[in-house]
């Protein structure tokens, strides 16, 4: 158990594991995402209330899902950084923050474009939208804070604290549609209940969510490998790796 824990923190070990999983993550992610999106765009029936504009859901919900789960993963890694000072945890936080920022932006943007034909407005300052905007600023803040501190260890600790403080926003996003009256419709996915939408809509949505998760896994591995190369460029294992021409 402890040996596994130590291995998990070793950048060299991570490099090997990432190389083994990455082709599968990329292929699986692309196939599932393509299947989900094509199904959702062309084959799923139209919504009786919203017409065809609802097809935006197949990118809006996966983006919003990823935006929040990436933040939760970052917060868990931040705990590991603060408590065990594990190098890989900080590498993870730094590598995936821009990806989280992108997904949060996508969720907000697709939501705004969806809102126009559905609610008649691009934007309202209601709880769900505002808390998502705060999430966008949290991602931006974490990236900016990391770049503004030169020392690697101080930067890691400062960013970890910021990410942990911001985690309070996540339950607010999740329950905002239940706690307040908002224009936003309630959650589409619930783990504890049967899906509230028709199967022909729900399955493609599930496919695109899974596909995007896999693609995120690939992106995270790739970006972590880059960050590891930067940090460990003077070590012997990196020297052996690049001289042997392995990637």
């Amino acid at each position: 158990m402890w040996q596994f824990f130590h291995k998990l923190g070793s950048p060299k070990w991570f490099f090997g594991i990432a190389n083994r999983f990455m082709p599968w993550l990329l292929a699986g992610g692309l196939i599932l995402l393509a299947a989900g999106l094509v199904w959702g765009l062309a084959f799923a029936p139209k919504d009786y209330l919203q017409g065809n504009s609802y097809r935006i859901i197949f990118i809006h919900v996966p983006s919003a899902f990823l935006a929040q789960s990436i933040y939760i993963m970052m917060a868990s890694a931040a705990v590991v950084t603060l408590v065990w000072r594990m190098k890989l945890a900080d590498v993870f936080v730094k590598s995936v923050a821009p990806v989280g920022l992108m997904f949060t932006f996508l969720a907000l943007f697709t939501g705004a474009v969806w809102g126009k034909p559905t609610w008649g407005t691009w934007w309202v300052w209601d709880a769900r939208l505002t808390s998502m905007l705060i999430l966008l600023f949290l991602y931006g803040g974490a990236i900016a804070l990391d770049r503004s501190i030169n020392d690697e260890k101080s930067a890691a600790r400062a960013v970890a604290v910021l990410v942990l403080v911001g985690v309070v926003n996540i339950p607010i996003i999740k329950y905002s549609v239940d706690w307040w009256n908002t224009l936003h419709q309630p959650a589409t996915f619930k783990l504890t209940e049967k899906p509230s939408m028709a199967m022909e809509m729900w399955v493609p949505l599930l496919l695109s969510v899974l596909g995007l998760y896999l693609l995120f896994g690939w992106l995270a591995c790739l970006r972590m490998k880059t960050e590891i190369l930067v940090r460990e460029r003077r070590t012997r294992w990196v020297k052996e790796l690049v001289l042997a021409g392995r990637k």
Partner: peptide, 16 residues
């Protein structure tokens, strides 16, 4: 055309 919703849907997919 998506019954008039085309511009909204396609903008979202393009940006995504």
């Amino acid at each position: 055309a998506m019954e008039g919703h085309g511009p909204y849907v396609w903008t979202c997919y393009a940006v995504f």
